[in-house]
């Protein structure tokens, strides 16, 4: 339990973890807490928060329950964040591993592709992809995955390049192990900690990206998400502050939680690199 001790030594990480557990719990129990569809118009429009305890966070422009929207939106945000990160890892890790392991022309070719994606502003590219394929949860997840894999590829490439020169890898090569088996069994397992740290931060930025897309009206029109709630509320921000405030807080807390966890993971997984421990 050395890992946990080191993780817990960073108080921020613990706070982040607690926050994330709460958010995940809300998301998981949303259908129980708010059995109504979050799009259902349940009360009069523009009901301020804390006035009617049945709708504690108030209602929006057409009388939908803000609290229900937040809970159901958490599902969308977390789901898109996780799945798109997995998608980015699935593209980035093989690219980086192959480039780092084989070097030479393979490296050149793969890194030029990576650089191509890195030079295009990622948010603009995401907008274009979503607009082409019509906004839906699949196209949004895909778009976020496609724009966020290059840093993964570069990170993995760097790790693999340095691991490639280690004696145990050379020994494996001398033993006649095949390249795929060396990459999968010898190299990648040793590069996993920085990838985990990066992935936790990527989930956070994916959630932000999804919210930004929804804010711009490029969200899945059939799913309630935090970004959509803020986007729909911005036109009435003077009449109804609570419509953009609560989803905004939800996004801030989730992203903060993931960042704290990421930092703490970094401490726990790379104790020698940690800034906090002497």
């Amino acid at each position: 339990m050395d890992f946990w001790r080191r993780f817990a030594s960073n108080r921020g990480g613990v706070i982040g973890l607690v926050l994330l557990v709460i958010i995940v719990a809300v998301a998981a129990t949303a259908p129980l807490l708010f059995p109504n569809n979050p799009w259902k118009m349940v009360s009069r429009p523009f009901l301020p928060p804390f006035e009617n305890m049945k709708f504690i966070l108030g209602t929006d422009t057409v009388g939908r329950d803000v609290a229900a929207g937040l809970a159901h939106g958490a599902r969308v945000s977390l789901l898109v964040g996780l799945v798109s990160t997995v998608a980015a890892l699935l593209i980035g890790i093989p690219m980086g591993a192959l480039a780092g392991y084989f070097g030479g022309r393979v490296d050149d070719a793969l890194m030029r592709i990576t650089e191509f994606f890195q030079t295009v502003p990622s948010f603009a590219l995401a907008i274009v992809i979503v607009a082409i394929f019509q906004p839906s949860v699949v196209s949004i997840t895909l778009a976020i995955g496609i724009v966020s894999w290059p840093p993964v590829a570069r990170l993995v490439r760097g790790e693999v390049m340095s691991l490639r020169k280690r004696e145990y890898v050379e020994a494996a090569i001398l033993q006649g192990l095949s390249a795929p088996s060396i990459i999968l069994r010898q190299v990648l397992p040793n590069a996993i900690s920085p990838i985990i740290v990066m992935a936790s931060l990527m989930v956070a930025s994916a959630i932000l990206l999804e919210s930004s897309l929804s804010f711009l009206g490029l969200g899945d029109p059939n799913l309630m998400s935090w970004g959509y709630m803020i986007g729909a509320a911005r036109t009435v921000i003077r009449q109804a502050w609570w419509l953009s405030f609560f989803p905004g807080v939800a996004i801030v807390l989730t992203v903060l939680a993931l960042n704290l966890i990421g930092e703490s993971l970094n401490d726990a997984l790379n104790p020698r690199l940690s800034r906090r421990r002497s």
């Binding site: 569809n37 799009w39 019509q134 906004p135 009206g217 490029l218 029109p221």
Partner: peptide, 27 residues
């Protein structure tokens, strides 16, 4: 604009309340 987008959402909800399945396509 927003009013017309909200109108689409309200129509969808009205129809789903009576058991008609609706999917919004935004463009």
């Amino acid at each position: 604009g927003e009013t017309w987008m909200r109108l689409g959402e309200v129509i969808k909800q009205n129809l789903e309340d009576v058991g008609i399945k609706v999917e919004i396509v935004s463009t």
